[in-house]
Amino acid sequence: MNEEKAIIMKNIGKDFKVLNRHEGLKGSIKDLFSRDYNIVTAVNDISLEIPKGQIVGYLGPNGAGKSTTIKMMTGVLEPTRGEILVNGCVPYKNRAKNAENIGVVFGQRSQLWWSLPLIESFRLLKEIYLIEDDEYEEMISLYKSLVNLEPLLHKTVRQMSLGQRTLSDILAAFLHNPKVVFLDEPTIGLDVSMKAKIRDLIRELNKRKKTTVILTTHDMGDVDALCERIVIIDHGRMIYDNDIDHLKSYFGSYRTLKLRLPGDKWVEELIDESKTDAMSVISEYQKKSKILDIKLEEISTEEVIKKIYMGETVKNEKISGIDNSRDDKDLAI
């Protein structure tokens, strides 16, 4: 069973002891011995099972506990409560062993050697991860087929644009063919075409290598383009765990129909698709007058997420009523 799950978390919680700091050099020496702590709970009672090969969007407002969870999954932090297994091993107990099977990209922080050309970084990673020659060659030729690698290989990371650097970091994270890759805001600060390129790359690598991807992002474009499943946490608690379509139906399957009628005026109709469909509304109008133009607007993922972050979550009974085909555990709260 563990074989099929890339990540298993059971009732994971993390408390931080925050020291009440004193001022100045003298104060900081005092802090060395101080026992004056406040306890802050960053993450509480998160249970999650992620099967191999899935791309999961891990969302939440700033300070929700996303980074803390990721750090626990990568073995940097030890959870205060609960059990965690990544690729069948306990990350914080075997940080180095866990590191062999994961890849990590932090959108704003390159993990490559700043002053080395990309190809040299790759060669060092090959040594560090003990990648076999044939596996390495295979990966490089896969990369060459997916992106225009040649111009990047001989550039140092320092000389790269942000987009190129992010691309390089993602390639480096997948190089040792890890089972799980953590991407923390990979498209932050990138232009539209670069974003698309990065998304294509992630999707393609996930498909070819069956890599599990945990993606944290604030860009709903990333979520729409990549994620089969979304997990949302806020205030350290999981508030949603399901696929993207269900997310939209949180607020009913509403669409806005806009019709331009003679006299250049737009008419807006809010359509609840569970009761009526857009075509019948259009034909209603058509009976009365001529329609010059039609627009159909969906409620965007962004708006849904915004509503959830702002605490406008629909009542509990509505959430649990959405889906009966999945296990109950998929629906947190």
Binding site: T74, G75, V76, E100, R109, Q111
Partner: peptide, 11 residues
């Protein structure tokens, strides 16, 4: 916080 990158390698 950049130091965290050193924690992700198996060395």
């Amino acid at each position: 916080g950049d130091f965290i990158k050193y924690c992700f390698r198996p060395i």
